[in-house]
Design a protein around this nucleic acid. Sequence first.
DNA 1: CTCCAATGTCAAAAATATTTGACATCAGTG
DNA 2: CACTGATGTCAAATATTTTTGACATTGGAG
Lengths: 71, 71
Amino acid sequence: MGAIRNQIREMRAQREITQQELADRVGVTRQTVIAIEQDKYSPSLETAFKVAMVLGVPLEQCFQYDPRGKR
Amino acid sequence: MGAIRNQIREMRAQREITQQELADRVGVTRQTVIAIEQDKYSPSLETAFKVAMVLGVPLEQCFQYDPRGKR
DNA sequence: CTCCAATGTCAAAAATATTTGACATCAGTG
DNA sequence: CACTGATGTCAAATATTTTTGACATTGGAG
């Protein structure tokens, strides 16, 4: 469901990291990165933590929960 | 798998909330609460956000990621 | 002691996330 | 133009999370 937003794409751009690179560093597939960037579903907490860690920011800086949002 | 810790049980105790109550307010099953409290698996980001919200704290205050932890 | 609420366990089914693989598009480069 | 890297899409298989339901244990209250 889509009540979570994220700034991964933007952050990735700023850092000039490719989807593939991020995926590799996080330890998931490029498909997963794509799905997350496009809010296709909400990732596991562990994956989210890893992404934030690779991007070097606290989790809440790349993922936000808005109860009242579809997308 | 289990690289994530949480203080849900403690926070629940402080607030004198029951597993069932937390589950209801979060919108999941008691089983899910139990599983999370016991680190049986890492919940979805959405569930984690809701739990934090119900407990009235930022996500990172009830869930911590420690890359080097089995549990 | 009896009863009840809260917690825990087990296992199977259902739902959701993640992987794998194949292929399409688009922009830039030689 | 031909080629390549980055992104996107689709679908099926696999893995993980969540639900459902049934039952055990413990501690407190009446």
